[in-house]
């Protein structure tokens, strides 16, 4: 494989709180190749947003990164160690330069008292040497590109004058105007109606092709993942538990949690199938289970072993990786 665009290794991160150190991300490693769409799936509280924010060093001040963690960004034939970027001027490359982010709630992400256009121009001028007129031209061009009707007039409007779907489009336009190499999309369609979601997904797919951009797509919706991602990583309680191509993971899930997620999903093609929830609730991060983090809810737990041994990733012959003792034992037997 060629050099990955971004390479995350052993990312471990805790938050200092009144109740002590709370581990949010535990030993997470993954690579994203240029132009690749990586889906990151998991329940709320599984650490997917925190992982993504680490790439831009956007976590709050009480976040403590483990010294072993490393994130390397490879752009334009040079590699950047993200954790070595201390000053704001150095961090520009990961904050809007080579990496951009779109958020779940577009209403909360735009400043309410500055027009959409001015916000787009502002970030363009920060990240390049262009003047205001040129930045405005590019912004309007991007608004046209994402399908906002009447962009020249919309340019001067405020976030409240846009509908939910249009705000998300404007957000995409803004994130892409600096031509980032990696776009982090944190639940970009969750707050939208299905019909609008379908429009935004199509738009993002087109733009990936056009700009040859990689995306880290965070969502809890496996259907959205199926339609957008090339690779999928599944997280549970701060740990990566399964990784593979989208077809492998969705058609042949190896980890009991991934299987449980797929079984819990209501499907239109089989209305008689009973919905099977994953039993129990996700444990509090203050009270992480020992051994495999999923052992408290796992339907096929081996008992004692799963409560004591932390499973390592095993790779099957198709390159699909899973962290489960059961898979390890089966591997050993085979």
């Amino acid at each position: 494989m060629s050099t990955p665009l971004i390479s995350v290794k052993d990312l471990t991160l805790s938050f200092k709180t009144d109740e002590g150190l709370v581990k949010a991300v535990d030993n997470v490693s993954f690579d994203i190749a240029p132009g690749e769409v990586m889906g990151l799936v998991g329940e709320s509280g599984s650490g997917k947003s925190v992982t993504a924010k680490s790439l831009m060093l956007l976590n709050p001040d009480n976040a403590v990164y483990d010294p072993k963690s490393s994130i390397t960004l490879n752009v334009d034939d040079q590699s950047v160690d993200v954790f070595s970027l201390k000053k704001a001027s150095e961090q520009m490359i990961i904050r809007g330069g080579a990496i951009s982010m779109i958020f779940q709630e577009p209403m909360a992400s735009f400043a309410p008292a500055i027009s959409i256009g001015e916000q787009m121009v502002e970030q363009l001028m920060i990240h390049s040497t262009m003047n205001h007129a040129r930045a405005k031209e590019i912004s309007i061009e991007m608004l046209t590109r994402v399908g906002i009707p009447d962009p020249a007039q919309r340019f001067g409007q405020y976030a409240f004058e846009f509908s939910g779907g249009m705000r998300q489009r404007a957000m995409v336009a803004m994130a892409l105007s600096t031509k980032p190499k990696l776009l982090i999309a944190d639940e970009p369609t969750t707050a939208l109606d299905v019909t609008i979601q379908a429009q935004v997904i199509d738009l993002m797919k087109d733009l990936v092709k056009e700009f040859h951009m990689a995306i880290l797509f965070i969502t809890h919706d496996l259907g959205v993942i199926a339609q957008t991602a090339d690779q999928v990583a599944v997280m549970y309680l701060g740990k990566l538990i399964e990784k593979g191509s989208v077809r492998q993971v969705l058609r042949n899930p190896q980890h009991p949690y991934t299987q449980g997620l797929l079984d819990a999903l209501p499907r239109l093609d089989d209305l008689d199938r009973p919905l099977k929830p994953v039993e129990g609730d996700i444990p509090s991060p203050l009270d992480r289970p020992s051994g495999c983090v999923f052992n408290t809810r796992c339907p096929v737990t081996l008992g004692n072993e799963c409560e004591t041994i932390i499973p390592k990733f095993t790779t099957n012959k198709d390159g699909q990786q899973v962290a489960c003792l059961l898979a390890q034992t089966q591997e050993a037997e085979a």
Partner: peptide
């Protein structure tokens, strides 16, 4: 709710 809980 998350899908795993939604079914429940």
């Amino acid at each position: 709710l998350d899908v795993s809980i939604q079914a429940d």
